[in-house]
């Protein structure tokens, strides 16, 4: 239940930023989630509204932006798409893949009014 803790943190940070901006309403929250960040997107989507309930973020729209996993295979020197951890090269089968994208877990922006 890593995702619930994460959702609570997202709501907390978004509300703090809203307050910092002296805005009266939080409308939207954009979160980037890498495909190999170890977070289940569906679980996070479910947890965010639950975490926002009873707060000023209750009406906000949560948008999750999936960042595809990418790596560089040190065995065959190719740029490859990866979708699981530990990353395995889909071309040559090697596990020696350095991940270059897909581990993002970032609150990108908020929309306030």
């Amino acid at each position: 239940m890593h995702e619930m803790g994460l959702a609570m943190r997202i709501v907390e940070i978004a509300l703090a930023e809203t307050e910092k901006a002296k805005a009266s309403r939080l409308c939207e929250v954009e979160v980037e989630v890498g495909e190999v960040a170890g977070v289940m997107r569906e679980a996070l989507e479910f947890c965010l509204p639950a975490a926002a309930r009873g707060t000023l973020a209750e009406q906000a729209l949560f948008t999750i932006i999936a960042v595809p996993g990418q790596g560089h295979c040190q065995a065959c020197q190719r740029q490859v798409a990866i979708s699981a951890f530990p990353a395995q090269c889909p071309k040559c089968g090697s596990f020696g893949v350095a991940i270059t994208a897909g581990t993002e877990l970032r609150l990108r922006s908020i929309n306030v009014e």
């Binding site: 994460l6 940070i13 930023e17 805005a23 877990l105 970032r106 990108r108 922006s109 908020i110 306030v112």
Partner: peptide
């Protein structure tokens, strides 16, 4: 208004 946050979670 959009506010760029870029907070690493």
């Amino acid at each position: 208004r959009k506010i760029v946050v870029e907070h690493e979670l």
